[in-house]
Amino acid sequence: MKKINKFMLVIMMLFLICCTRYDTAYADSATIENENDGTVKLVYNNDYDVKVKLIVQLTGGTQYKYDIPKGSVDIKIPMTQGNGEYKFILCRNVSGTKYAVMQTVSVTQSLSSDNEAFLSSNYIIDWDKTNIAIKKAQSLAGKGSDNDKIKYIYEFVVKNYSYDNAKAKNINDIAKTAAYIPDVTKVYNAKKGICYDYSVLMAAMLRSVGVPTKVVTGYTPNAEVYHAWNNVYANSKWNVIDTTYDAQMYRAKQKYSMYKNFSDYKDVVYTY
Results as ranks from 00 to 15, higher is better:
K149S: 04
D148Q: 03
G82C: 01
V105W: 03
K87A: 15
S106L: 13
L111E: 08
S106C: 10
Q81M: 07
V101A: 06
R92C: 00
D173S: 15
D126E: 13
K129Y: 11
A166H: 11
I174G: 03
K167C: 02
G96C: 01
T130M: 06
K151I: 04
K167M: 15
S120H: 07
N165S: 14
D126S: 13
A141K: 12
I77Q: 02
D128V: 05
Y163L: 02
V107N: 00
K167N: 05
N131D: 11
S95P: 03
K149D: 06
K87G: 14
Y161N: 06
A168V: 02
L140P: 03
S112N: 13
G144C: 09
V105I: 15
S95Y: 09
T177H: 12
I77T: 01
I171G: 06
N93W: 00
S120Y: 08
G142C: 11
E155A: 07
V157H: 07
V94L: 04
K159Y: 02
K87H: 14
S106A: 12
Y154A: 08
K136S: 09
K151N: 12
M102E: 15
N122G: 13
G82V: 07
K176Y: 09
Y99D: 03
Q138E: 11
S121C: 13
I171D: 06
F88V: 06
F88Q: 08
S113E: 05
K159T: 09
